[in-house]
Design a protein around this nucleic acid. Structure first.
Lengths: 176, 176
DNA sequence: GTCTGACGATAACAATTGTTAATTAATCAC
DNA sequence: GTGATTAATTAACAATTGTTATCGTCAGAC
């Protein structure tokens, strides 16, 4: 845990501090992402275009990383975009630079892979929630487990994240 | 790619070959898993109990690994069970033994983390498919992308995996 | 062989969600 | 502030899925 804090402090020391207003595009669908962002303050959403409609599949808050994993892992273009939802404070590093640091510092590599492991378990749970629960149950669960999302994110993005229409989410919210 | 093949050959050389009939329980929900299995021949399903109903959330075929990631990563008990669906040939290794080998052989560690990265992207896509597609679209997609699942696995497990009832899957299959 | 249980198809009905459109509320730009 | 745009609510109806139950088939146990 103290090791975790050390890593965060190293990030703040070694990465470049940047500030962005709301609705800034950090990662653009179909391109090679140049930077990895650590979110110090603010939040983002990741989404992609599905037959002309936005599908938001992820919210990222303080303490998380925003980038295209595909680019980091295998230099493929991103299939999604990332944009800020609020004025945001980031610490960024170039992807190539990040890869070099991982090779040079085993503890950075270990931290990165631990993060990947956690993300794997996170997405596994997210998927499982979709096959075992109804949309209403998923909303209640989101409210209970991640109230910050419901408080800080516009409803139609949450509806998209839950896999339902904004009309349906509005109905669920207004059930007795 | 040749490196991949080397790793598989090492697995077959270093792990213990085991054969299991269909319906053998390899991982039991709520327990600490003792082994990591490499599937050489046959297939498995991973599932858990949800208010008295089985929910199958994963099928594992030849070339995949079966175990509890939670146990490997952080020594927590498994929240799911794994059982064979067909007579199966496995290569197994004790979890503790596997951890030691990872520490001693960097290429095993690299292989493991590469596998974790791939699984992360896999589950991310699985989750995304659930928020962007209808159950019918997901079934058609499964049929197109993974026909082996539809051919080798009983329908009610597939329905569970798709997040619908077996009645609904039967209807979808019989739409013109 | 016969019995049993598991599996899949089908039917009838309830409940939920999607779609479209209209209305109100909130937010943003100037 | 004012006007324009975007977001959220509500309504009406269509489409889909869930639920429960019945039936036929098949495989395995004995």
């Amino acid at each position: 845990m103290t090791e975790q804090i050390d890593i965060i402090q190293n990030i703040k020391r070694l990465f470049t501090r940047e500030e962005f207003p709301a609705k800034t595009l950090l990662v653009k669908e179909g391109t090679l992402t140049k930077k990895l962002f650590y979110i110090d303050r603010g939040c983002c959403r990741a989404w992609f275009n599905n037959d002309g409609r936005d599908v938001t599949y992820q919210f990222l808050f303080e303490g998380n990383f925003a980038s295209s994993f595909e680019t980091i892992i295998s230099n493929e273009v991103s299939w999604y975009s990332v944009e800020t939802l609020e004025p945001t404070v980031m610490y960024s590093v170039g992807i190539e630079d990040f890869r070099n640091r991982m090779d040079q510092h085993p503890h950075i590599k270990a931290f990165y892979y631990h993060y990947v492991e956690k993300r794997l378990l996170f997405y596994q749970k997210l998927f499982v929630a979709h096959i075992k629960d109804s949309p209403e149950q998923r909303y209640r669960e989101l409210l209970a487990q991640h109230p910050e999302i419901v408080l800080r994110v516009p409803q139609h993005y949450i509806a998209s994240f839950l896999g339902i229409t904004s009309v349906s989410l509005s109905r669920i919210r207004n059930r007795k």
